[in-house]
Deep mutational scan, measured.
Amino acid sequence: MQIFVKTLTGKTITSEVEPSDTIENVKAKIQDKEGIPPDQQRLIFAGKQLEDGRTLSDYNIQKESTLHLVLR
């Protein structure tokens, strides 16, 4: 499924993921596309910071959901 990751600069990254993918996994995909190390990434969805060990389905993230990427 496709999800969108919006950066603070307003850029939107499209990523191909599975509901069973972990947040860590998603951060790795963002690193592949943007070159941002996962340890600098914080992903936010519905006002919550997403934890690395959890999966997209844990957070009820569905296709075409938009996550927000904040850098630390």
Rank of each mutant, 00 (worst) to 15 (best):
K6W: 06
K63M: 10
N60M: 08
I3E: 02
Q62V: 13
D58P: 00
T22A: 04
E64Y: 14
D32W: 09
E24S: 12
T9E: 12
I23T: 04
Q31D: 05
E18M: 14
K33D: 06
R72P: 10
F45C: 02
K6H: 10
N25V: 13
Q40I: 12
A28D: 06
Q31N: 10
K27S: 02
K6P: 01
A46E: 14
I13M: 07
G47F: 05
Q41T: 10
R72V: 14
E51H: 08
T12H: 06
I3R: 00
E18V: 13
I13K: 02
G10K: 04
G35D: 06
R54G: 06
V5N: 01
A28R: 15
L50M: 08
G47Y: 05
S65D: 14
I3H: 02
T12E: 04
Q62S: 10
T14S: 09
I3T: 00
D58I: 03
P19T: 07
I23K: 00
S15Q: 15
Q49V: 15
E51G: 04
L8I: 12
L71H: 08
Q31S: 12
I13Q: 03
K63V: 07
F4S: 05
Q31T: 09
L56H: 01
I36W: 15
L69T: 02
K63L: 06
E18D: 12
K63N: 15
L50W: 02
S57Q: 13
R72D: 10
E16P: 05
E34S: 14
T7E: 03
T9D: 13
G47T: 04
D39S: 13
E51L: 09
I36R: 03
R72L: 14
V70R: 09
D39N: 11
I44H: 10
K33M: 13
L56P: 00
Q49D: 15
P37W: 07
T55I: 07
G35M: 05
A28N: 11
V26Q: 01
G10E: 03
H68F: 14
F45S: 02
I44D: 04
E16F: 13
S65L: 04
S15H: 13
P38N: 07
V70W: 10
T14Y: 09
G47L: 03
K33A: 13
D58Y: 15
K11F: 10
D52R: 04
T9M: 10
A28T: 10
E18C: 11
S57E: 12
E64D: 14
M1S: 03
K11S: 07
K11Y: 13
V5T: 03
V17T: 03
D32F: 11
P19G: 07
S15Y: 15
K63E: 12
N25Y: 11
Q62G: 12
T66R: 05
G47I: 02
L43S: 00
P38V: 15
S15D: 04
E64K: 08
T12G: 03
E18A: 12
P37K: 07
K48A: 09
L71T: 10
D52V: 05
K11H: 12
T66W: 08
V26C: 01
I23E: 02
T7Q: 06
K48V: 14
K33I: 14
G35K: 07
I36S: 04
T66E: 07
V26L: 14
T55S: 10
D39H: 12
S20Y: 11
T14M: 12
S57T: 09
R42D: 11
I13A: 02
Q49E: 15
L71M: 09
S65M: 11
V26D: 00
F4M: 05
E51K: 09
G53A: 10
L69S: 01
K29R: 09
T22Q: 04
T22M: 06
I61L: 03
Q49S: 10
K48D: 06
K33Q: 13
K6T: 10
T7C: 12
D39A: 11
V5L: 08
D21Q: 05
R42E: 13
K63G: 13
L56V: 08
T66G: 02
N60P: 02
D58S: 14
T12F: 09
D32R: 12
T14E: 09
R72K: 13
I30P: 01
R72S: 12
D52Q: 03
N60T: 04
Q2I: 15
E24L: 14
E18L: 14
K29Q: 11
D58N: 05
I23R: 01
E24D: 07
E64L: 12
V5Y: 02
Q41G: 05
D32T: 10
Q2R: 14
F45V: 02
D32A: 14
E34P: 02
D21F: 08
G47R: 04
K27A: 03
L8A: 14
V26E: 01
R54T: 05
T55D: 02
L56N: 03
Q31E: 11
K27L: 12
G35S: 06
S65N: 10
S57V: 07
T12R: 07
E64N: 15
N60A: 07
P38M: 15
Y59W: 01
K48E: 12
E18Y: 15
V70H: 09
D21K: 02
S65Y: 08
Q40W: 10
V26G: 00
L67G: 01
K27G: 01
P37F: 06
I13H: 04
A28P: 00
E34G: 06
H68Y: 15
S20I: 06
Q62W: 07
F4R: 06
Q62D: 09
I36N: 03
L43M: 04
T12V: 14
D52C: 05
D52W: 04
P19Q: 06
I30D: 01
I36H: 09
E64V: 03
E51N: 06
Q62N: 10
K48L: 12
L67I: 13
V17Q: 05
V17N: 03
K27Q: 03
A46T: 05
G47H: 06
Q40V: 11
G53M: 08
K33W: 08
E16N: 12
I23V: 10
L71Y: 10
P37Q: 07
D32I: 12
T14W: 08
D52M: 04
I30R: 00
T9C: 13
I30L: 08
F45N: 02
V5I: 15
L71S: 08
K6D: 04
L8S: 13
K11N: 07
V17K: 01
P37L: 07
E51F: 07
M1F: 15
T7F: 15
L43H: 00
E64M: 11
I3D: 01
D21N: 07
Q2P: 06
P37T: 07
L50T: 02
E18T: 13
Q41R: 02
K33G: 07
F4P: 01
N60E: 07
Q40A: 10
Q49I: 15
D58R: 01
S57L: 10
S65W: 04
P38G: 09
E16Y: 14
G47S: 04
Q2T: 14
E64T: 07
T22D: 03
K6G: 03
L71I: 12
T55P: 05
V17L: 05
R42F: 14
K27C: 02
S15M: 15
D39L: 08
A28C: 07
E24M: 13
K48R: 11
Q62I: 12
K29S: 08
M1N: 04
M1R: 02
R72I: 15
L43E: 02
E34Y: 14
E24V: 07
I30V: 05
L71K: 06
L67M: 05
R72G: 09
E24Q: 12
I30A: 03
Y59A: 02
L67Q: 01
L56Y: 01
L67S: 00
I3G: 00
E64F: 15
T7R: 08
S15T: 15
E16V: 12
I3F: 01
D32H: 11
E51D: 09
S20G: 11
Q2F: 13
T66Y: 07
T55N: 04
A46Q: 14
